[in-house]
Design a protein around this nucleic acid. Sequence first.
DNA 1: ATCCCATGTGTACTAGCGTACACATGGATA
DNA 2: TATCCATGTGTACGCTAGTACACATGGGAT
Lengths: 178, 178
Amino acid sequence: MARRYDPERRQRIIDAAIRVVGEKGIAGLSHRSVAAEADVPLGSTTYHFKTLDDLMVAALRQANEGYARTVLARGALQDPESDLAAELAALGSEWFAGDRTGLEVEYELYLAALRRPALRPVAAEWAEGFADCLALRTDPVTARALVALIDGICLQVLLTGAPYDEEYTREVLARVIG
Amino acid sequence: MARRYDPERRQRIIDAAIRVVGEKGIAGLSHRSVAAEADVPLGSTTYHFKTLDDLMVAALRQANEGYARTVLARGALQDPESDLAAELAALGSEWFAGDRTGLEVEYELYLAALRRPALRPVAAEWAEGFADCLALRTDPVTARALVALIDGICLQVLLTGAPYDEEYTREVLARVIG
DNA sequence: ATCCCATGTGTACTAGCGTACACATGGATA
DNA sequence: TATCCATGTGTACGCTAGTACACATGGGAT
């Protein structure tokens, strides 16, 4: 019995869940599919995560942390001298560059909060955390609006297949900043 | 057997699908659950809609038409003298007033396009149709941004459970209009 | 050193799913 | 009127799901 007493078992299950959502979407997420992806027995996924909602909460929280890091990594966002709209539009370009799987996973789990109350606090954490970060450069109301507009623009791109337009994004974000 | 040769069978199945999504979410949508809700045999739902995607396409299209009517019904939107931002913010209040089930169904199907390519053209129809309508009062770029911002604001409300704030919405929409 | 219990493993049960298919029926067409 | 085929009905199959549970194991508290 290899891998008994695996101290990272729980973490590996979360990572596997994120990969499953990336490959098959939330509809393809099950205790069994995650167990197979993580190479652990079925009972192990049900032991660590009693319900799929629990697992999605953990996965969304982890995805949020990843995107929070990409925001934090863009240090210029904190620099009062930088062009906030341009920085945010460039952040969007970074998100959409290359493989979009990560972004799709983030949004799929985020949007799942619509029907899964358990996810709502985690979705709210993301929105508020991002807004708090932006509020350092502007007022809270504007910060909330920026988050909403960025969400809306990202969704239009993901849902309709339209290309991401950084210059357009910068322009309209700048209007909200006023 | 009663109800043989039911000329509205297909329509009744679509209506039932929308009710099922409203009650149980897309996750609860199946040929069987819809058949039960529409009070038709299983074979009837699979006959009219070969796949669930087909059924979701029909349901989203119908939901879109309903919301398009609420937009058109707000005649003041077309009136060049009216305050566009205020009218749109009021439209949001109308959407959120009372039972939100309809709005949740609309967004749940709309957002499902993220993972279901079959729904993307229908999602794009909604976004473009709404934007085209707004473009009558402003330019196409601003119209698109307004749709994105409205989507973002509605989602924040639905996902995080925050209340809908008409005055805040009017204020930030006005900034985008410039 | 002993024991407990958090953790890990394997399997079985029941329910619901999409799918397929054989057959029924009667409006539309010729 | 005779025929055809779009539409309607009922049932069965194989698959996957969540859940439950009995049992195994060994790290850490005592």
